[in-house]
Amino acid sequence: MTDTRLDVLAIGDAVVDVIATADDDFLAEEGLPKGSMRLIDATEATRLYARMNQARETSGGSAANTMAGLAALGGRAGFVGQVAADQLGEIFAHDIRALGVEFRTPPSDPEIPTGRCLILVTPDAQRTMNTFAGAAHTLSEAALDPKQIEDAAILYLEAYLWRPAGPRAAMKKAIEIAHRAGRKVALTMSDIACIASSRDSFLELIGGGGVDMLFANENEVKALTGRDDFDAAVADASAQVPLLVVTCGERGAIAIERGRRVAVSAERVGPVVDTTGAGDLFAAGFLRGHAEGRPLEQSLRIGAVAAAEIISHFGARPEADLKALVAEHLQ
């Protein structure tokens, strides 16, 4: 895709990930279902943070993680997301730019602080997320740079940001700009909770041709289509989009492009430590392969390698040399 300045420009939640270990008793005390994601307010964020073990803080957010992975793989990545003019906002901006991701969104008034995601990781590597969206959900059309959208081969949208009216309007405007410029639009379903609250509007967007690539996991594709059977759900979803990518955990992933189905098995880089960001990094790998014009199977395998690396350590940002890992596994 040589006619563009960026391979992918993502729009998503700009939050700071705060990651700490926790045991099952802690989750029970807090009444938190393991592996769940809930939205919390500023007061609850402060209270829970005070109870957490020593934590690690990095810029986060689903789409931002994907762009960090894309940059680590040598791709040209950009990100649009709203932070406030506060300490966490500065951390986010510095961190993502240092990773090689273009980030131009001006900070907003600190009256609504930068969002943060408090992530509790249990010994079985499952992550339980508690998200205070903060400034992230104040993103508006005014924050968009139309030229930046036109300069990207793929516009990548995060479902976490779809529910609030302002960010949804911004993403719809971005879709118009991208398609008018002849660019592709990708959507990641992010979490089953996003589908529960906005299923009808997602179906309207997808059915209306607003999405060229759809990323989901097994549970998400079932929830989106209303099908309990996985194969039936995949058949329904793939009939709505030119390219569907579905991750299947330990069983790998599949892609269906205009009726052609390709599957790959999961890759192994090390022990499973923390599943935070697995889907985000899988998308990064797939998008990197797609941007390079690689066949579906190779793009899926790059995604599997990136996901395997991310679950081998704490946090949703790569620690190993992803380009070297991909070269090794694709031999």
Score class of each variant (00 low, 15 high):
residue 33 P to R: 13
residue 33 P to I: 13
residue 34 K to Q: 15
residue 34 K to C: 14
residue 34 K to H: 08
residue 36 S to L: 10
residue 36 S to P: 05
residue 38 R to F: 06
residue 38 R to Q: 14
residue 41 D to G: 15
residue 41 D to A: 13
residue 41 D to Y: 12
residue 43 T to D: 15
residue 44 E to K: 13
residue 45 A to T: 11
residue 45 A to G: 07
residue 46 T to K: 15
residue 47 R to F: 06
residue 48 L to T: 05
residue 48 L to G: 02
residue 49 Y to T: 12
residue 51 R to K: 15
residue 53 N to L: 10
residue 55 A to D: 13
residue 56 R to Y: 08
residue 56 R to I: 10
residue 58 T to H: 11
residue 59 S to I: 02
residue 59 S to L: 04
residue 60 G to K: 00
residue 61 G to F: 11
residue 61 G to Q: 08
residue 63 A to I: 02
residue 64 A to R: 01
residue 64 A to P: 09
residue 65 N to Q: 13
residue 65 N to K: 10
residue 66 T to D: 04
residue 68 A to S: 14
residue 69 G to N: 03
residue 70 L to R: 00
residue 73 L to I: 11
residue 74 G to Q: 08
residue 75 G to V: 05
residue 76 R to V: 07
residue 76 R to M: 10
residue 77 A to D: 05
residue 79 F to Q: 01
residue 80 V to F: 08
residue 80 V to R: 00
residue 81 G to V: 02
residue 82 Q to F: 01
residue 82 Q to M: 15
residue 88 L to Q: 12
residue 88 L to R: 14
residue 88 L to G: 00
residue 88 L to E: 04
residue 89 G to R: 00
residue 89 G to Q: 07
residue 89 G to P: 09
residue 90 E to T: 14
residue 91 I to S: 04
residue 92 F to L: 07
residue 92 F to D: 04
residue 93 A to E: 07
residue 94 H to D: 15
residue 94 H to W: 01
residue 94 H to E: 15
residue 95 D to I: 04
residue 95 D to P: 05
residue 95 D to V: 03
residue 97 R to T: 10
residue 98 A to T: 11
residue 99 L to N: 02
residue 100 G to L: 05
residue 100 G to D: 09
residue 100 G to T: 04
residue 100 G to I: 02
residue 101 V to Y: 00
residue 101 V to A: 05
residue 102 E to P: 01
residue 102 E to V: 15
residue 103 F to W: 04
residue 103 F to G: 01
residue 104 R to H: 09
residue 105 T to R: 13
residue 105 T to D: 09
residue 105 T to N: 13
residue 107 P to C: 05
residue 109 D to N: 15
residue 110 P to A: 12
residue 110 P to Q: 10
residue 110 P to G: 08
residue 111 E to S: 14
residue 112 I to S: 06
residue 112 I to M: 09
residue 113 P to V: 01
residue 115 G to Q: 03
residue 115 G to M: 06
residue 116 R to H: 10
residue 116 R to M: 10
residue 116 R to Y: 02
residue 117 C to G: 13
residue 118 L to I: 11
residue 119 I to K: 08
residue 119 I to D: 09
residue 119 I to N: 11
residue 120 L to M: 15
residue 120 L to E: 05
residue 120 L to W: 10
residue 120 L to S: 10
residue 121 V to H: 02
residue 122 T to P: 08
residue 123 P to C: 07
residue 124 D to P: 05
residue 127 R to Y: 08
residue 127 R to L: 08
residue 127 R to H: 14
residue 128 T to I: 06
residue 128 T to D: 04
residue 129 M to F: 12
residue 130 N to R: 15
residue 131 T to N: 06
residue 132 F to S: 03
residue 132 F to K: 06
residue 133 A to K: 07
residue 134 G to Y: 06
residue 135 A to R: 00
residue 138 T to F: 04
residue 138 T to Q: 15
residue 139 L to M: 13
residue 140 S to N: 11
residue 140 S to M: 11
residue 141 E to Y: 00
residue 142 A to W: 01
